[in-house]
Amino acid sequence: MSLPSFQLHRPRELAEAVALWTEHGAAAKLLAGGTDLIPSLKQGLFAPDHLIDLGAIAGLTGISRAANGDWLIGAMTRIHEVAEDPILGREFPLLAAAAGQIASPVLRRMGTLGGNLCLDTRCLWYNQSYLWRQSCGFCLKKNGAVCHVAPGGRRCWAAFSADTAPALLVLDASVEIAGPAGARWLPLAELYSGAGDHPLRLGRGEILSRVRLPAAAAGMRGSYQKFRIRNSIDYPLAALALALRREANGAVTARLALTALNPAPVLVAGLERCLAAALAADPPDLAAVVQLVNRAAKPLSTSTVPADYRREMVLIQARRALEACLA
């Protein structure tokens, strides 16, 4: 199946990419690994006049250490490299686990970390051909005025479905955004708007260029729990990342995040306090923590797998992740 025509740009420098992206705005799309964008172009979800391929920018790849010990990963670093890097894997096994379960081996070699973080949200009513979408009168996210998932509402509930985002959220990662006014860093959670139809909070011309993992998060215990029907290729249908450390004084540092359920990856608020209370009981009572996850998850019928099952699944994942990290 052919792609619709567009003008292709292959900038060699990030600044050039930012300039092109600023110039063309909504008439352009950024191409990283292409594993999501190219199928979407085939389905007519986008018909950009300009495609800006980031693949020729040398400085956007690679894994390195900053002077303060933090880890820096270029946005165009392949998922496969993130999953397989031995030192990164030792320091942040959670990230390796999440990255290593993305799609299939060949797609992990093509897809990039930045692309995964900027993945478009997914929905049964959206990731379809023009004919298909026409047959239901289109939807809020593309060409239409109604949401078939929550009819009557004005919100798009397409699910954010990247695997690395929850892992990086619980590892307290931040992302570097290059833009016309220079570069800025922001906590990863702030990248996401929570709106399914425009999931990223990026301004005109802004490009995610690097990911920073704080040295403080290295060595945390982690668990990545992923539900999908097949053990390869599939996107997650519910997934959860937990990072946890028991400090010397007995305190617990813990963060938990969800993906593939809500229009954004969700860092569950209030986890540490709730967990501390749970652990104070003897035996520990994790039910309240599971309920916290239950309140944060908002799965809707964005997939053929029932939403209520995806909710039950994430609760099971929460318990399993906690048991694994507390063991």
């Binding site: 049964l124 379809q128 051909s129 097949r230 053990n231 390869s232 290729i233 996107y235 053929t304």
Partner: peptide, 26 residues
Amino acid sequence: EEMAYTRSGQLANPGLLDYRVPTILD
């Protein structure tokens, strides 16, 4: 594997991503 239909008669999974033929790992 299942051809799933929406309430309005659309085949919900008309592709190999969502019509889930087992992979070698399954």
